[in-house]
Design a protein around this nucleic acid. Structure first.
Lengths: 189, 189, 189, 189
DNA sequence: GATGAATGAGCTTTCATTCAT
DNA sequence: CATGAATGAAAGCTCATTCAT
């Protein structure tokens, strides 16, 4: 792979940013190069094709980019704790805070991820199941099937984010408190 | 609204059925009349337009049709119990069984519902919150914010269905058992 | 050509009538079997195709039918006079009265005639030129090129009808008086 | 409104030109992007949509373009005279000459104008009525209802043009002479 | 690198017509 | 005779992509 010039990188970022906004606004199915170009202030959709080999490459990059930012954000919450319980709590909190602070990114991610290559839900699940198993090994969590409960934890996360996307008025701080209560009850036992 | 002839009804059903299969296979964004016509063995897309005023009408009908079948299915589980706990358990069980027995319908529904008119997630939430409040009033459930926990319960349902859609090998019976354990812990307290 | 049954004739008339209304309302370019069927209260456009070999045949029949009615109407005015001047005046009066009393027919005719076979403007012109020549031979009209002035007379007729079609509020009685003044000045000299 | 590039302008003009030819040849109802693209030597109808937002925009532009050319042409005749009589005569002469020299444009205009936005017949009538009133005020014309006679004058113009469109062999120079005789008789009195 | 014009396949929808019942 | 379902061509329009400048 070639090294990318600074200008090139800047343009790609600009286009990805515009795509994020479009995705959050009209959804994946209605996203088009025309809308993205307009949103980015570009004079031609040709420029998008110039910087991205194909629509799919753009979709992948949008997904990867938002995912990277999200991961960084979550990491900022995680590295303060060392128990599995603390890590789980930090993860959930980070997710809801990201939604609160970067709603557009989050909504765009939910729209684009099903159509992007790159890490999928299985990868999320693997990580979560590992965390849960670690908690069980440390005696913090009750006995349960970690793979299955991992599905549940991520389902709760996704569901709250989806609801918040539908209803911008949702009180995410209340959600965070109630969510932790529920997860603690369910996982710690 | 005019009465629809038998043939008309049959064709519409056939088209809706083909649309369901296409939706489950390629997703909403890639759905097209061409694919549906091919799947249904129709000679042209014109026939779809003949039976449905517009693409949106087809989308709405697909959503309504699957939703109706799903509601019937769920009802078959519900009317055996009378406590809120029993009803909640039956609801969750019914959902997972529907996925197990009618996977294509369920997957199609997740694809189409965000783009259909008709009842939306808010309506689901309202019903669930009412059930939870009834359980609280009956002393079956612990104290929590019913609207928020309704989000959680439906999130769990949706998440399991989504996971099952991604991974057809998922053991839904195991999920059902673990899910009820988790929900009981979380809701009954 | 086969004899047409009574029912057949009635249906054709009904369809022609509906076509006239549609033509007057939306114009030739926007006319369609669907609109005509709806207007006639028919359940299918197939019925139109059943009674008319083709769209063109319907168009021709509409034109011929209205033209026939128009001719009858005009005749009712003509047969009272015997001079060319009287006949010319009666002709013009009849035209404007027909527009006043049967506006829909007249408007439909202007829409359909350019697309119908059957007698065309040349035939109208021939008749008018003959009348003018007769008037010249009788010493009623001044010397002019009859073929050319025939164009003018029919142009005046057509223009007034077209204007009246555009502006239903046009005072056709005033038009009739002014028109005759003008024609008399121009033709008698 | 954005400034249009030279190439853009040229293509639009080319498409408008092709549309004019198609209109003159097959009429408004049978006009289609396919015919226009073929006539213009374009590879696809998509290019027409690329340069014109919609069919209606093309229709409007064709009408406006021909109208503009026509107005310029007429102006070249008008500015030599100062009496109402002279202006009227120049107007009529200009119309017939335009038909003689730019028959395709003229025929296209008659086809497209009823379906275009932009100035309509009422606007033509207003101008003509004003001219007639000016002539009356100057004592050049006899007493008549200017609004009505304006209809007549334009009717004569339209009728001759229509006839010429139908019969390309029509002697427009003869028409011009006879027309002026008739108009003079009718208007001057 | 950027532009905007061009491409051609694709979309949904409408059309007149045909056909089995 | 009438119905309404079916047909396939054609419509206007949008799409991602390509290309010359």
């Amino acid at each position: 792979m070639r090294a990318k010039s600074v200008t090139e990188q800047a343009r790609r970022a600009q286009i990805v940013g515009a795509a994020v906004e479009v995705l959050a606004e009209v959804g994946y199915a209605a996203m088009s190069f025309k809308l993205i170009a307009a949103r980015a202030g570009l004079s031609s959709t040709g420029l998008i094709s110039y910087h991205f080999r194909s629509r799919q490459e753009l979709v992948d990059e949008v997904s990867a980019d938002v995912l990277r930012r999200f991961a960084e954000f979550v990491l900022g919450f995680l590295d303060r704790s060392d128990t599995a319980t603390g890590e789980l709590r930090a993860f959930l909190r980070a997710n809801l805070r990201f939604m609160r602070d970067h709603r557009t990114l989050m909504v765009a991610l939910t729209q684009v991820r099903p159509h992007a290559s790159g890490p999928g839900p299985e990868d999320d699940l693997r990580g979560m199941a590992d965390l849960l198993r670690a908690g069980q090994a440390a005696g913090e969590f009750r006995a349960f099937d970690a793979d299955t409960v991992a599905i549940f934890v991520l389902a709760l996360r996704n569901g709250v984010l989806a609801r918040s996307a539908e209803d911008p008025g949702l009180d995410l701080d209340l959600c965070e408190r109630e969510l932790w209560t529920v997860v603690e009850l369910a996982v710690v036992g």
